[in-house]
């Protein structure tokens, strides 16, 4: 459907960014819809039984179409393809009914996927997460140059795939921080 309003990426462009940073690649993702899910009190079982995977503490689960990662002791974030799930909240309310509080989060975040082996050298310049020791699927909130971000380790260190979700309004500053850091270790 051709919309009346044209979307822009968090960086203010019409198409997402793809950029090489020395040995690594940075891929901006605008094709993922996000929503937070928090089971209502006493309804945790219903939420756990639904088709959407519930992540363990500080972990993420990959699936199709639903993936998810842990946010807080009583809330997790759900990811789904944007093209088919733009109105992700409606989809999830269809699944959970009133068993969970669901909040659309798609555009609250800018997502950068960093790809390539040896990412730990770059991450060491950005945040205090020990990406070498972290297990695959590890998901945590962290701070990059004063900016709160979610970090998900998508692949073992030998392959190197890390997702960063930063506040959408700070997309430019976050990209700048990553680019500067990469310049010192690339």
């Amino acid at each position: 459907m051709d919309k009346l309003l044209k979307p822009l990426t968090a960086l203010g462009a019409s198409a997402p960014l793809r950029k090489s940073l020395g040995p690594w690649e940075l891929v901006e993702r605008v094709d993922v819809a996000l929503a937070s899910v928090a089971p209502r009190r006493g309804r945790e079982g219903e939420v756990a039984r639904a088709d959407v995977p519930v992540p363990a503490v500080a972990a993420s689960v990959q699936g199709d179409p639903w993936s998810s990662f842990w946010l807080t002791p009583d809330m997790f974030m759900v990811e789904a393809p944007f093209a088919s799930h733009e109105d992700i909240r409606a989809h999830l309310l269809g699944i959970y009914g009133d068993a969970a509080s669901v909040t659309e989060q798609t555009d609250a975040w800018v997502r950068f996927d960093l790809l390539g082996p040896g990412l730990e050298r770059l991450m060491a310049k950005l945040c205090n997460v020990d990406v070498v020791a972290a297990p695959e699927g590890y998901a945590t909130r962290t701070v990059i140059e004063h900016m709160g971000c979610y970090l998900i380790k998508r692949a073992p260190s030998s392959e190197g795939a890390v997702t960063l979700y930063g506040a959408r309004s700070m997309a430019g500053s976050l990209l700048h921080a990553i680019t500067l850091a990469a310049g010192t270790v690339a």
């Binding site: 140059e145 309004s169 700070m170």
Partner: peptide, 16 residues
């Protein structure tokens, strides 16, 4: 790195 223009991040609204 927190010096000059990089002292703190900037937040831009969607219509910035």
């Amino acid at each position: 790195r927190s010096q000059g223009r990089d002292f703190k991040p900037f937040r831009h609204t969607p219509s910035h």
